[in-house]
Write a protein that binds this DNA or RNA. Structure first.
Lengths: 186, 186
DNA sequence: GTAAACAAACCGACCAAGCGGTATCTTACA
DNA sequence: TGTAAGATACCGCTTGGTCGGTTTGTTTAC
């Protein structure tokens, strides 16, 4: 009779995804503290019991969100590198563009990324991922000058998160072009 | 008889400072989650009631810690700028050195800084502070190329926090020298 | 000069709320 | 008819915060 989740068509994959997206949205709106099991469940239109059916505990939820993010970033980098001319700085250019793109995406999970700093486990996973990625491109992107460019991209991303999407300085396109140009210098 | 805070000489300023330092220390050791009212009070040798006598609520405590940090950073920048040769990029050089120094300081409150991202109010205050500071040095440090250098410094700082004090790439001294050199290019 | 009066510093016990998590029961679907 | 999806009710714990009382320090009145 009542339209509870009992008689709603059961689509677990869909609910699972709704939970992940709810977690990301909450993190972006209210920061890390906004991610409570209850709030995530509410937003996804499920009860707490329902959430715990999909995820063993809160940490498992967060880990899943993190996986979700890494996957997206991985795809983004691969796609951008395929479009690049290759050679010296190929990965760094993809990294820069990805960083700038990432800021506009709804599902980037910026606040979530910040949570890495809080959680040592996530920190280690991130480090493992980025190190592996860098090692793959050591032949083209190990130059210190390229490292500086990637650091600047990180700084820009951080500034944008910090300033609610409005970093100071020159317009994003100009800055991005500037960084890309730097990857082509000796 | 017992050395409670009752018979201890009353030095509210000192106790207040002890509370601030306790909060910073806890944040560095255990991350943001480590800052509980009880823990801060314990570490400062005061009870929870005593803490709430000095600060209206937890947020007031955190705000005060933030002020404390900004003051230190302000002093650091002033000191470094006094040592600089002046002219183009003077502020940016001080900013870079301060960023690198900051990482080694015990009272830098890295985890606290991260909490800015979580708290929108702190975020705005930070932005106000940095904007004012930049405006003061607009004549020497408004060049886009200097902006890139400052972003790289931010990126380095963030990487260091993320990787538990061990960022990848070349040694810190070399990177710092590289960034300083960039402030002197056309 | 001293004693009363007042305010500031601080304690310690307590509370309500919210947290993550569990156990048990219903419903839907294959 | 069994199993996965989900609801509901509950538990133990921690948290931020309150409140009345106690001690110390300072001011005021005589």
């Amino acid at each position: 009779m009542s339209t509870t989740a009992y008689n709603r068509p059961k689509q677990p994959e869909q609910v699972r995804r709704a939970l992940l997206e709810a977690a990301v949205a909450l993190a972006e709106e209210q920061g890390l503290g906004g991610i409570t099991v209850q709030a995530v469940a509410d937003r996804a239109g499920v009860t707490k019991g329902g959430l715990f059916h999909h995820f063993a505990n809160k940490q498992a939820l967060i880990d899943a969100v993190f996986d979700f993010m890494l996957e997206q970033m991985e795809e983004s980098l691969d796609r951008l590198m395929a479009q690049d001319e290759g050679g010296h700085g190929a990965f760094t250019r993809a990294y820069v563009i990805s960083t700038f793109e990432c800021c506009d995406m709804a599902l980037s999970g910026q606040a979530l990324t910040i949570s890495m700093v809080t959680d040592p486990a996530l920190r280690r996973r991130w480090r493992g991922w980025i190190d592996a990625r860098l090692a793959r491109h050591a032949d083209t992107d190990s130059a210190p000058s390229l490292h500086v460019v990637r650091l600047a991209a990180d700084g820009y991303w951080f500034a944008r998160v910090l300033h609610d999407g409005d970093p100071g300085g020159e317009p994003p396109e100009a800055l991005q072009a500037r960084l890309i140009a730097l990857t082509r210098e000796t």
